[in-house]
Design a binder for these strands. Structure first.
Lengths: 214, 214
DNA sequence: CCGCCGTTGTTACCTGCGGTAACCCTAGCC
DNA sequence: GGCTAGGGTTACCGCAGGTAACAACGGCGG
């Protein structure tokens, strides 16, 4: 029957796609985000046009690749965020999970942050900034959802939770990126310091003697 | 005398450089960060090799261009951070200054965040992530310095202040980027919400009824 | 058995970019 | 006049993303 035939083909196409993605993964892991289509095709044992048949353009391949890693990371983070423990512990666990991930595979991290190769040709002129990687947007929205679900923020809770979600994710990202580059302290220390920051120690500490205060 | 001649030449070279930078500025403002060297040269009324004689390569030009804007922004932020007012007011003023800047000229903002066109050819393999723009690094370090100078953080104050500096800058950047893309609220509201976050409201708020709490 | 068609793959090419080598030309100085 | 110094140009290289046109394989209906 035609249906089984089509199904067969679709199944094989999907399998092929997975193969290609795995090859691309290997290359990106080795060469970083500037991996070329030629290199990826070579790694997969084929040539460029096939890649383009499967993914449209480089952005498509990169998006597909990013989706896999992003989903995996998001799963891990959700687990840490949903664990049964008090709030502070869970925030620390989530921060630690993120930092452990970027520490374990910096190349993947770098790739996930990079794909700002947007190339928005259609419109031009009134387009707004949008620099951050999609991963960060998704993380921010996810965290916002969790915050709004779990915490009582009073009126305007939707706005506030989203601001905080994206703000906290930004904090994590900024500090993590700096830390990953310089390694100025252990991961535990970084996690504790960031949690302290979120716990309002900045508002509590006293000014140094002799200055106008921070 | 030779010296006056050399001086003359150096002066003219510097002036030329400024002209070229201004032309590049115009193009980047118009075309975004993917402005090509050809376009910039055309805008300046000359051809590519001259650009390369002045700036070495594209990275050089972009770095020179970024330095100007970064310095200007840093000046504005320092002013806001050093104003004579209580701490909370100054934090809000600094946040607002940053957000106003990226709101006023998104293309410049986008350009400043982009130049991760690193292209580190020499080494390969053990290089670490490093995705953030130099601007954010400078901002983080600057803020860390201010924090350590002004606030009494006890032992480990150097580590802690740096973590907080980069964390806060990351928060500002992440939230700002999201806000600039979606404009979900007014700037004042965003500033207040972020300041609230830094002031520890996250630790203070109570859990919603019926859940395990955030 | 034969011709038809869709899938899978290839080679060979186009475009545009960053970057450079070689040449040109005008000015000033001996 | 001749001769070097800069500022300038044309023409090119290499490489990337992306595509058109063609070649093999396999099932299908006549």
């Amino acid at each position: 029957m035609e249906t089984t035939q089509q199904a067969e083909q679709q199944r094989s196409a999907r399998a092929r796609r997975r193969q290609l993605l795995e090859a691309a993964d290997r290359v990106v892991l080795r060469d970083g985000p500037q991996a070329s289509m030629n290199a990826i095709a070579a790694e997969a044992g084929i040539t460029k046009p096939i890649l383009y048949r499967h993914f449209g353009d480089k952005g498509g391949l990169y998006r597909a690749l990013a989706k896999r890693h992003t989903d995996a990371l998001l799963d891990a983070l959700r687990t840490a965020l949903d664990a049964p423990a008090e709030r502070r512990r869970r925030v620390e666990a989530t921060l630690d999970t993120y930092l452990a991930a970027i520490e374990a595979r910096p190349q993947v991290y770098r790739f996930l942050m990079h794909p700002a190769e947007d190339a928005q040709l259609p419109e031009q002129g009134f387009d707004v900034g949008r620099h951050s990687a999609p991963l960060l947007r998704r993380l921010g929205e996810e965290l916002a959802k969790v915050i709004e679900e779990r915490v009582d923020l009073g009126p305007d809770s939707e706005q506030l939770s989203r601001v905080w979600g994206h703000g906290i994710v930004g904090m994590m990202h900024g500090a993590g990126d700096w830390w990953l580059g310089e390694r100025p302290c252990s991961r535990e220390q970084l996690v504790r310091s960031l949690a302290d920051l979120l716990w309002g120690r900045l508002a509590d500490v006293s000014d140094r003697a002799g200055g106008p205060g921070f």
